[in-house]
């Protein structure tokens, strides 16, 4: 009995101790002038899906849950958001050139279609971020359609052999 108390006490101390390890959550910015949804490329229903299923990691508009303030989960959240934004940040959409946008849209279609995104651990903690098959199809169709739209609009900027 005494032994158990010691172990629990020790664990509590460790948990308290790791709270002192510095951990920086990527900064939140609500207003982003170059945001994808503001670019007019996204229909309202798709915009809603992107907001609830992607934007926490793939934009500057991250909504941090309580456990993102507590170690050790805070470390994981910080890492995922940092990496997510690095790979694709919808808040900087307008700053990407056309080719880059096309590449990202293609990646989106692929990752959403084969279920790679949103990440399992994220959906586990955010039930509302889970995508149904129909919602996946909607996003894929949007991404592919948007690629064609961008190419048509940018036609004059390209020169083909």
């Amino acid at each position: 009995m005494k032994r158990l108390t010691y172990i629990l006490g020790f664990l509590a101390l460790v948990l308290l101790g790791i709270q002192l390890v510095p951990n920086e959550l990527p900064e939140v910015q609500i207003y982003n002038t170059g945001d994808l949804i503001q670019s007019g490329l996204v229909s309202e229903d798709v915009a809603g899906l992107l907001k609830t299923s992607c934007y926490d990691c793939h934009s500057n508009e991250t909504v941090y849950p309580w456990y993102s303030k507590v170690a050790p989960t805070s470390w994981l959240v910080a890492k995922d958001v940092r990496e997510g934004r690095e790979e694709l940040n919808f808040s900087y959409w307008a700053e990407m050139d056309l080719m880059k946008q096309l590449g990202k849209l293609d990646d989106i279609a692929e990752a959403v279609e084969n279920g790679k995104m949103p990440m399992e651990i994220y959906v586990w903690m955010h039930k509302s971020a889970k995508l149904t098959d129909a919602q996946r199809e909607l996003i894929v169709a949007w991404a592919e359609g948007a690629m064609d739209t961008l190419v048509e609009e940018g036609e004059e900027d390209f020169e083909f052999e």
Partner: peptide, 15 residues
């Protein structure tokens, strides 16, 4: 592939 898909792939090749 269609043109948009080709361009997307080219962007990734470039990267």
């Amino acid at each position: 592939s269609r043109k948009a898909k080709q361009l997307a792939t080219m962007a990734k090749i470039n990267e």
